[in-house]
């Protein structure tokens, strides 16, 4: 088995050299705490019928937040429907993330200057987009990079091969972050691919692949920082396999009791990505119950404000469903637009 990078073990002990000082670690911890509160809130909202479906990322906060920590504002992130923690870290607002889940197209529009594409719902097509985004930056002469996030299931799509191959051939500044969370809906990782690791697939495309403890935010930070640096220096793409676990069902519509045991989930809960950082910070004397309460209440307030903002938006009128199909509504579509409005009144 290829060795897996780990810097902080499950007990909160440093087993490698931390890439950052404790103030940064505190920031990463706060981001993970906030992301988990959002995840729980969104799940609760779905149970109340206020969101359509929701794909929880609990247990994957370190893989996401550690991976994107070293991205710069000009860099691109193109991620999947389970990557809200990473996207929000890069400026995609909680409000917009909620809107994608209430079923409102305005969730797909982050603020100007945020180079984060709307979450990809189809599995895997967006991996190729990260090649084009990165390639364009090279052609434009910037040093910006593109990172894509996807799951172990996505590596079975043909798009994975095409994305990795292009990135290798053209040496695009792309960072592929596979969150191997053990399950693609009901399909376990062992039956998704016959290769020992996903990281080793990088060999076939002429790029480095690194196996990382995805529940260790410092290891993720370290591996991603090196990959981002390489890409920025023009040394090409990297594949990172973050070994983590999907603690909840595939979505709120999934019944994971049909295909896996609660014991497995419980085992992974013991490797929680947040708790080990808390233990580390506590031992270093930079954690307190009071600070924990402060960051939790700040997060809760921000997320409640986002919920209120998202729910206060009036749903689209019939006319508005036509308005973003083209730069300008072509005449035949304008006729339909008028008829739709009339049908709504009838």
């Amino acid at each position: 088995m290829t060795e897996m990078l780990q810097i902080l073990d499950v007990d909160g002990t440093l087993v490698g050299e931390s890439p950052v000082d404790d103030s940064v670690t505190r920031g990463l911890y706060e981001a993970m705490v906030t992301a988990r509160i959002f995840d729980h809130k969104a799940t609760a909202l779905q149970r109340q019928g206020r969101l359509a479906t929701y794909a929880p990322y609990e247990g994957q906060e370190a893989a996401q937040i550690g991976a994107v920590a070293m991205l710069e504002p000009g860099d691109w992130l193109v991620a999947s429907y389970r990557d809200g923690a990473a996207m929000q870290s890069r400026g995609y607002p909680w409000t917009q993330l909620l809107l994608t889940r209430t079923g409102d197209e305005r969730g797909g529009r982050p603020p100007a200057g945020v180079n984060v594409l709307p979450p990809s719902i189809t599995v895997g097509a967006h991996m190729v987009h990260a090649v084009g985004l990165a390639w364009a930056e090279s052609l434009k002469g910037t040093d910006a990079v593109a990172m894509t996030m996807f799951g172990d299931g996505a590596t079975s799509e043909g798009d994975f091969h095409e994305a990795m191959n292009f990135a290798g051939v053209y040496q695009t500044p792309t960072i592929f972050v596979c969150q191997n969370n053990g399950w693609a809906i009901s399909m376990p990782r062992a039956r998704q691919t016959a290769s020992e690791t996903i990281a080793q697939k990088a060999d076939g495309y002429g790029m480095p692949g690194e196996l990382v403890d995805g529940n260790d935010v410092l290891a993720m930070y370290d591996a991603a920082a090196r990959a981002v640096d390489r890409a920025r220096r023009g040394e090409g793409p990297t594949l990172i396999e973050a070994v983590t676990h999907r603690i909840r069902g595939h979505t709120t519509a999934d019944d994971d009791g049909r295909y896996r045991s609660p014991e497995e989930t419980a085992r992974w809960a013991e490797r929680d990505p947040l708790e080990r950082v808390r233990l580390y910070l506590d031992a270093a004397g930079v954690w307190s119950r009071k600070w924990q309460e402060e960051i939790e209440s700040a997060a809760t307030a921000a997320i409640e404000a986002a919920v209120e903002e998202a729910e206060s938006l009036e749903p689209f009128t019939a006319e508005e469903i036509f308005d973003a199909m083209y730069a300008e509504v072509p005449p035949p579509l304008a006729i339909q637009r008028r008829r739709a409005a009339e049908a709504g009144l009838a």
Binding site: A52, T102, G103, D104, E105, P315, F316, T317, A318, E320, I321, F322, M325, P332, L333, Q336, R337, A340, G344
Partner: peptide, 14 residues
């Protein structure tokens, strides 16, 4: 209509 199927909050218009 000749549009993408709207998401949940506007689906009834489609």
């Amino acid at each position: 209509w000749d549009t993408v199927v709207p998401l949940r909050r506007a689906e009834q218009h489609y």
